[in-house]
Design a protein around this nucleic acid. Sequence first.
RNA 1: UACCCCGUGGUGUAAUCGGUAGCACAGCAGGUUUUGGUCCUGUUGGUUCCUGGUUCGAGUCCAGGCGGGGUAACCA
Length: 570
Amino acid sequence: MTNAPDSAPASDFIRDRIRADLQSGKVQAVQTRFPPEPNGYLHIGHAKAITLSFSVAKEFGGRCNLRMDDTNPAKEDQEYVEAIKDDVRWLGFEWDALLYAADYFDQIYAWAELLVEKGLAYVDDQNAEQIAATRGTVTTPGTNSPFRNRTPAENLLLLRAMKAGSYGDGEKVLRAKIDMAHANLNLRDPVMYRIRHMHHQRTGDKWCIYPMYDWAHGQCDSIEGITHSLCTLEFEHHRPLYDWFCDSLGIYKPQQIEFARLNVEYLLTSKRRLLQLVEGSHVKGWDDPRMPTLRGLRRRGFPPEALVAFCKHVGVAKFNSTHEYGLLEFYVRDHLNKHAQRRMAVLDPLKLVIENWPAGHTELVEAQNNPEDPAAGTRLVPFSGELWIERDDFLENPPKDFFRLAPGREVRLRSGFFVTCTGVDKDAAGNITAVRCTYDPATKGGNAPDGRKVKATMHWVSCAHALDAEVRLYDHLFTVTDPASIDADNFLTVLNPNSLRIVRGKLEPSLKDAKGGERFQFERLAYFYCDHQDSQPGVPVFHRTVTLKDGYKAQKGAATKDQPKGGGKK
RNA sequence: UACCCCGUGGUGUAAUCGGUAGCACAGCAGGUUUUGGUCCUGUUGGUUCCUGGUUCGAGUCCAGGCGGGGUAACCA
């Protein structure tokens, strides 16, 4: 699946259990599933769940289904079904079967009648408020519904009438008859069916009663023969109910195992909050490159392989943890370093004039496409007497640890020539308008025949040949590492006003042919993604995926870490 | 103030049947380098939440604390 380091699955409590189940013979073949509700887009948290369920199945020679948990037509939409399928495939996983909870509605209903007949479920006439009010609290028991003792025969009639559409929305519900005083609130006669006269994207108008999550999920798992039903920690309290339904029905009971959901610094995975960002236009949609959605990460340029490697690395445990954002970046850089071709681009241009360059002359220099992958070949880049260099690659009065261009200093222009700074031009206000230098014709390609060394190599783009292009520089959407901890009222105050900065860059001409979906490293700056939405033929738009590590800045402290000011450097 | 779950270096995560803490990232130092990237080498960090107990031996088992998270939708 991935070539990233330590992609081998670590031993964890879930795999340990599966191994034991296989060994004891309790389980013959592993069957897992990823059960999203098609009511929104998948995000990085889902990537962990997807990676887990699909990987586990694969590792143990089992199967993994993609099942749409479409039990609530009020919130779901076919558009999301397609998006989910697309995102799962993008991550690199292929399901053994594509299934829908709605396809089991007949079976689930039949089981409901069975429970009614067994006296384990009843129709309640109370409304939602009354049911909530009589549920009790975590410290006080609930009270029985006045309709709790209806006979099985009466309940059966009522349930059938519910199904037949004899009642309006909310008029009646079917409830499991368990224990209104149970310490686990989920077992205080949970609602199984509610009435919703609604069109379902899959079953049309066949049903007007729809099963609740608890009264569908375990049943679906059972029907599919799921051996290990993996889900996140918040469903832990639901497991007793999951078990109760299967046991009461006398059907095959899969084992639900819960693990901690993924948390990453600066990222939010709450659907509600994400929706707030989109609806408030704080981002440009669900696929905004600052969003932690899979679609957003895709547009940001994150390779799916990097995401999967990250998800495998973080492991699975029950401890509620938060991963450093830097770990995610590590996997992105690790993959991109090996696969992204190099190009040169100047994002904060400063003119460099080569005084001894033959007027009007252009020379082509050969540049490596990827030093990490010789097979990527080389390309020709035009070099001339006026070049763009990065503004912060020149300093008139450099500190001792600054290796780049400065008056009197010689540096290498990558794949080009050695140049020596002879002076600067300034405007009336004293701002530097251009840097002047001379070049050494003998150093073409970047090496001096006499063996002399330079301490710095800089990127450049020929002014006459430069491609002007829009480059979008992204940074964290939030200024705090844990935006989820900020309450709803102040949530927007921690939005990073500099999370998106758009600049016009001077790019080497070959980038004119960049296609949407391609990834590059703009040397010495960062990795960039050619946007598949906004790029036009010949007019590419680039998104900064992640910066390169910067050893120089690191030495100077992290003061500018979250507030990039230079062209593309942090 | 009920019930459930969890607690290992800065962040995560490992440690066969209880045998004396490993790995990754980050950090630091050095080397290599036509990217201050990559790569290579070395290295700093842990009384395994606390207190007792069982044991020849406890991160692993037991008890009691402390701390964190979760749960009261006709959502999933």
